[in-house]
Design a protein around this nucleic acid. Structure first.
Length: 490
RNA sequence: GCAGCCUUAGCUCAGUUGGUUAGAGCACCAGAUUGUGGAUCUGGGGGUCCCCCGUUCGAGCCGGGGAGGCUGUACCA
């Protein structure tokens, strides 16, 4: 093949390969989460990566951009299929498809898996990432919401995040919807403006109160000079929003315009939202979860599409330095909420549901940066060198003997000489190599070389010393191979 | 999507006012050591200077266009 026609070996943009250390660390992390969820009585389920596009919801492919946001393609019969972009929509489909008594009600489900989003990737943001979800489908009780919050808090602590280093923030979409009613932003014709207001509120932690005010009003120019159009609210409307957002008297918000809050209190949705939060708050407080773990926060907005009631967000409060020494704030590592209409999309029958989703990949990199990731250090295998190619069978047997004793072991599989085999073992991180050339064979012995000890000794020894003396290796009778290896590994 | 910055060896980067054969560190390979990895020394392989077009006797360097990356912002179920 000519050089021009050769494909370039490169991973696709927004995707990445994962190596052994991270895989082992992730497994350990997933096992911890799973243990918490099982303890709460949730049941696992596994679902496909691909669903019919219409089952996933709003992303019906249009002619111009069939892949906006989601990866989609057409099946042979012309049906549109998509890679799932979260685990909630597929679960709703699963429940809707199994309503005829197969599943207990309420149905308590947990699952983890890869999800895909066709978006611009960024640092720590990929187009394929893992989520770990837990949901209670079929219960409208605030206890289900409270339980999800408690479980999320327990999970953080089980993963080694100390109390005070994370917080579960809770809000209620009904409060926000009530606010929008009061502002007179209602109905289909105001849908766009509604989103603009909610998005602006969501940016409190990013831009601060002043930035949010700009976004609620005319708009805001960012540091690159790009202008973001605002919601174009008037001053009174802005004060109402800020009152809800900051949840404190106007005097402290720096406002010039005192506004009557009683209009908010008189809104039914607004009151209902707070009543639900009160119930959740009472439940978690009774269970001993204080505001250091679970806290009401009016700035939490979450996804704009399907949440209907309480919404949650789990935030890490830890700060850490990245590789370049810059301070990193992790922010949200999970979120969720109540989605009472999602199953009804399929069945027409309202099925209340609430759930929580952990961004596994993101949480893992956060844990890694703060040194809490358990990169379960599996010992690299013992390597048996092939000194004499005619005696492969003998080396093969040694390897099998070691494996039978529960020791990770392998025979060198290449064709290179001894020196290269040693290099191979070194690069592998092998603790020991087993050497049996003709000399040892004649004596019925094997050499066990301790690579870790050897590199220690080499620190303060000249090349001649360690090469000639071979301090890090011992010769033992072949029959004592297993015992000697075990001793050397201990 | 919009804006700013960036692109030279596998990696991190130097490269003068435009001037001969484009450099360093790390990594890699080999030898010093015919049966011993990691330190050290010696040697070696590696380049479409992102791509195309233009200016020029001459372009890594100047101009135009394009691609890719980074950062911010928008979107984020």
């Amino acid at each position: 093949m000519s050089k021009e026609l050769r494909p370039k070996a490169r991973v696709a943009k927004g995707f990445r390969d994962v190596g052994p250390d991270e895989i082992r660390g992730l497994r350990s992390m997933l096992a911890t989460i799973q243990q918490v969820y099982e303890g709460y009585g949730f049941e696992p389920v596994e679902q496909p990566f691909i669903e019919y596009t219409d089952a996933l919801g709003k992303f019906l492919p249009d002619q111009e951009r069939p892949n906006a946001g989601v990866f989609s393609f057409q099946d042979e019969d012309g049906q549109w299929l998509s890679l799932r972009y979260d685990l909630t929509a597929p679960l709703a489909r699963y429940v809707a498809e199994n309503t005829q008594g197969q599943l207990p009600t309420p149905y308590r489900s947990y699952r983890n898996g890869w999800v895909f989003r066709n978006e611009k990737p960024g640092p720590g943001r990929f187009r394929q990432f893992m989520q770990f979800d837990a949901d209670t489908v079929g219960s409208a009780s605030p206890a289900a919401d409270a339980e999800v919050c408690m479980m999320a808090a327990d999970t953080m602590e089980a993963l080694g995040i100390a109390r005070g280093q994370y917080v579960m923030k809770v809000n209620n979409r009904k409060i926000l919807d009530g606010l929008l009613q009061v502002l007179g932003i209602e109905g289909e014709e105001s849908a766009g403006r509604k989103l603009t207001v909610l998005r602006a509120m969501d940016k409190l932690d990013k831009f601060g109160a002043y930035g949010v005010r700009l976004l609620l009003g005319k708009g805001r120019k960012d540091e690159s000079g790009d202008f973001t159009k605002g919601a174009d609210l008037n001053d009174v409307q802005i004060e109402h929003v800020m009152a809800v957002l900051l949840n404190q008297p106007y005097a402290q918000t720096g406002s010039q315009h005192a506004v009557d809050t009683s209009v908010l209190e008189s809104n039914a949705l607004y009151r209902e939202g707070f009543a639900e939060l009160d119930q959740i708050n009472a439940l978690v407080t009774a269970a001993g979860y204080g505001p250091d773990r679970i806290r009401i926060d009016p700035s939490i907005v979450r996804g704009l599409e399907y949440y209907t009631g309480p919404v949650f967000e789990c935030e890490l409060l830890i700060e850490a330095k990245d590789e370049d020494g810059r301070t990193v704030r992790f922010g949200s590592v999970g979120g969720g909420g109540r989605y009472d209409d999602l199953v009804a999309r399929f069945t027409g029958q309202k099925v209340p549901a609430t759930g929580f989703s952990i961004g596994v990949s993101r949480l893992y990199s956060a844990l890694k940066l703060v040194g809490q990731a358990k990169e379960a250090n599996v010992l690299a295998p013992v390597v048996v060198l092939v000194m004499d190619k005619e005696r492969q069978v003998d080396y093969w047997r040694m390897v099998m003997t070691l494996r039978a004793a529960g020791i990770r072991a392998e025979m060198y599989m290449g064709t290179a000489g001894m020196k290269a085999q040693m290099k191979y073992a070194d690069k592998r991180g092998s603790p020991l190599v087993i050497i049996q050339g003709s000399d040892e064979k004649a004596r019925g012995e094997v050499q066990i070389k301790d690579l870790r000890l050897g590199s220690e000794l080499a620190e303060n020894a000249s090349r001649e010393e360690y090469a000639s003396q071979r301090l890090a290796q011992q010769s033992v009778p072949e029959a004592e191979l297993v015992a000697a290896v075990k001793k050397a590994l201990a």
